[in-house]
Write a protein that binds this DNA or RNA. Structure first.
Length: 464
DNA sequence: AAAAAAC
């Protein structure tokens, strides 16, 4: 094994001069909570970090003025070489919180020899998110010797194999294709010393955990492991700590499920039949060139609503996991460029995606967990911008009402009487928190997305 | 009676 230096952080003189009181005040003002032994002081300006000069230059070019709270505390922690759990709301700069320390980490290592695998591995739950992270890595790795590549399914293997065989310091991957590549010996994880789980609670849930276990088992145990998410259900903590040693924990705000405060959240209690007409009414009010993202719970629902919208003349496209990756890529690019300002999506688009100027998120269906609710609406209101989230809420979703109200109140939103009434109609607070980590709610009842004369069958496919 | 993630 190649030994690696674990502490890349030395406090700048200005950080060293901060008194404990200064630190406490700084953290209090920015809602930073820390746990762990020997927690380093936060950095207040970019110049207090020890990132390479060219990184600071890119930061300046991006127009960033000062580190976000998760960055100011996360950077020195990550640079210490210790494990880390970082929890901060959607749109608060988590990607750079782990990517820049990753660059420093790589630059401090002996160069890659031929046949060696990556030094940094970042795992993400969707292909689009992996690609987005890689774009960010390219932006900051460009002017150094740090190469990166993205390994994900649905795309041709050839170029990915070529990149891996040629050697890259940073690999950003979705689990399935990475395991595929490992089994085919196109790469190995023997040199990985910096492992990131983005959207960590999702990566540790039922669907992903076995794959994550398989991947982590191939990485040296003295690696540095970093978890990041906007949501952190209590149920994951025990599982998560199995893969961590003496971690720091940094939380921005509270550990309570918390939505981004700059998003106006509007819950509309409707019946199933009222959804589509209500959607059209909202689109008529909101359409002014900016982007609108509509979430549904099922792929079929996405197709149906998109088809109906297009028949009614709306420029809508749909993204979900049954579509070819080439179409997913195209739809997302059309949405990003504004050529198709309305996108319907399943939860494939719920986490992490950073599209500028999404003015409005509409939950056509209420999600199957409140964590997903927080992530979905977090596609708007990014980097301090304002956004609006409309959510259609039916009596079938009543079990979420109480905890949803908690989220609304915590984020300073008004609670409509209709929602309050629904909350009172349910017994003790039951449903909601915990997402995939507890048993799923029962009783969905019959649902058809578009009722009566509005139903549009999709050619050749059986439905309902 | 959900989605995602490899071929």
């Amino acid at each position: 094994m190649i030994p690696f230096e674990k502490n890349f952080y030395s406090e700048s003189p200005s950080v060293r001069m901060m008194t404990e009181q200064d630190v406490a005040l700084y953290r209090r003002k920015r809602n930073i909570t820390v746990e762990g032994r020997d927690v380093p002081k936060p950095v207040r300006v970019f110049q207090e970090t020890n990132f390479p000069d060219y990184c600071l230059q890119v930061i300046a070019e991006c127009g960033f003025v000062e580190p976000t709270p998760i960055q100011s505390q996360g950077w020195p922690m990550a640079l210490k070489g210790r494990d880390l759990i970082g929890i901060a709301e959607t749109g608060s700069g988590k990607t750079l919180a782990y990517l820049l320390p990753a660059l420093v980490h790589v630059l401090a290592q002996p160069p890659l020899m031929s046949g060696e695998g990556p030094i940094v591995l970042v795992l993400a739950p969707t292909r689009e998110l992996a690609v987005q992270i890689q774009e960010e890595a390219v932006k900051f790795g460009l002017r150094s010797r740090v190469r990166s590549t993205c390994i994900y399914g649905g795309a041709p293997k050839g170029p990915q194999i070529r990149d891996l065989r040629r050697g890259v310091e940073i690999v950003i991957a979705t689990p399935g294709r990475l395991i595929d590549m490992l089994e085919a010996c196109h790469t190995n994880l023997r040199r990985v010393t910096y492992l990131v789980l983005d959207e960590a609670d999702r990566m540790l849930d039922m669907g992903f955990e076995p794959q994550i276990r398989k991947i982590i088992s191939q990485i040296r145990p003295d690696r540095q492991t970093l978890y990041w998410s906007a949501t952190w259900p209590r149920e994951v903590e025990t599982l998560a700590r199995q893969f961590l040693h003496n971690p720091y924990k940094v939380i921005i705000g509270s550990l309570e499920l918390k939505a981004n405060q700059s998003i106006m959240q509007i819950i509309e209690v409707v019946s199933e039949n009222e959804k589509y007409p209500r959607l059209v009414k909202l689109l008529n009010e909101m359409m002014d060139g900016s982007r609108i993202l509509i979430f549904l719970d099922t792929k079929k629902g996405c197709d149906q609503v998109t088809r109906q919208l297009r028949m009614d003349g709306w420029p809508a496209l749909s993204i979900h996991g049954d579509k070819a990756q080439s179409e997913r890529d195209w739809v997302l690019s059309q949405f990003k460029s504004g050529s198709s300002p309305i996108m319907t999506a399943t939860d494939v688009a719920a986490r992490g995606l950073d599209v500028k100027d999404i003015k409005c998120v509409i939950n056509y269906d209420f999600p199957t967990s409140l964590e997903d609710y927080v992530h979905r609406i977090g596609r708007t209101g990014r980097a301090g911008a304002k956004g609006t989230a409309f959510t259609f809420f039916t009596h079938l979703n009543a079990k979420y009402a109480r905890n949803l109200i908690k989220i609304l109140q915590e984020a300073g939103q008004t609670v409509s009487p209709a929602l309050a009434t629904l909350a009172r109609s349910t017994g003790a607070a039951s449903g909601g928190f915990g997402g995939n980590f507890r048993s799923r709610g029962r009783g969905y009842g019959n649902r058809s997305l578009i009722s009566g004369s509005n139903t549009i069958p999709i050619g050749g496919r059986k439905q309902w």
